[in-house]
């Protein structure tokens, strides 16, 4: 495959994984958690690197899961001590992220792992760093990792679709039916973490938040079915990734920045033209009088 094709595949995988996970982040009202975890996985990666001295995919995933769950646990714990939810999130993630930065600067000093890279990502280098896989042949490392994560996310969401649905909509009922709500919360945090860490190389910690939240927020405006929202959000993720790449190629600028920007444009488009929730349809349709009459 060509250089451009690899970049598009990689970016599309980011778009799909983040799009699917993002739907549940939004519906669970946990958009801020995405921001938090996207930063604290840095600590997980650094610790994984310090222990194993290599920057391989599986180690990074395990480190990220560890960091993600640690973040969720700390936030829950602070919140249980009367610290408001948003303050607990803000305190925990900045502290853990700072710890990651300190560790990188003082212990790691490796060309592959620096703060700039972690924050902004660098998709342009991805196609050069290839690994040879059986059957498929030469695949960029980051792309292979993303494909693995996308599969994990997809299988977890499809296999436990109705459990995700009920624990998101009505956790109290779910618990009374015997569904382990808290356990699923931590599984979900793990999924967010591995999605984030796999997307790191491509788009970085800051842009991954855009990919997680914005396509899902756009999809929310278009449909009234959860399954449709998941599908649309995944598609929006891919569209943003591809459009973003071509914007970047056109005006010769940052690819990850352009992709995040494309999600914003897509949201604006949805906000204006979505059939029921869009601004224009609200203008055109007379306001429904309520059932009270």
């Amino acid at each position: 495959m060509t250089y451009t094709a690899w970049i598009l595949v990689t970016a599309s995988l980011v778009g799909m994984s983040c799009g699917v996970i993002g739907v549940f982040l939004i519906l669970r009202k946990m958009a801020m958690m995405a921001d938090a975890i996207s930063h604290t996985v840095l600590l997980g990666i650094v610790i994984a690197f310090i222990i194993t001295r290599e920057l391989s995919g599986v180690h990074m995933l395990i480190g990220a899961i560890f960091a993600g769950i640690l973040t969720a646990l700390f936030i829950q714990w602070l919140h249980s001590l009367d610290v408001p939810q948003d303050a607990s999130i803000g305190t925990v993630f900045t502290t853990l992220f700072a710890l990651g930065v300190i560790l990188i600067e003082s212990f790691v000093g490796n060309a592959h792992l620096d703060v700039q890279h972690a924050l902004m990502g660098e998709i342009t280098f991805i196609p050069w760093d290839k690994v040879s896989l059986p059957i498929i042949g030469e695949v960029p490392k980051a792309t292979a990792l993303l494909a693995l994560v996308f599969l994990i996310v997809l299988i977890s969401i499809i296999a436990f679709y109705k459990e995700w649905k009920i624990t998101t909509f009505d956790p109290a009922l779910a618990a009374s039916l015997g569904i382990p709500v808290l356990f699923m919360h931590y599984v979900f945090m793990s999924l967010v973490s591995i999605t984030t860490v796999a997307s790191f190389d491509a788009v970085g910690a800051i842009m991954v938040v855009a990919m997680l939240i914005t396509p899902a927020a756009s999809a929310y405006l278009w449909t009234e079915r959860l399954s449709m929202m998941v599908l649309l959000s995944g598609c929006f993720g891919v569209i943003s990734a591809v459009v973003g790449y071509y914007i970047a190629a056109w005006i010769d600028t940052s690819i990850s920045g352009s992709m995040a920007f494309a999600t914003g444009i897509l949201f604006l488009f949805s906000f204006l033209f979505a059939p029921n929730h869009g601004l224009i349809s609200k203008f055109l349709k007379p306001v429904k009088t309520s059932a009270m009459e």
């Binding site: 519906l27 109705k162 909509f169 569904i179």
Partner: peptide
């Protein structure tokens, strides 16, 4: 206690009562 803007239909909400049995 729940968010009624959740993207789903009435029939699906009722079916959630059966998720434990399913």
């Amino acid at each position: 206690s729940v968010d009624w803007d959740f993207p789903t239909i009435a029939l699906d909400v009722v079916m959630m009562g059966l998720y434990g049995q399913i």
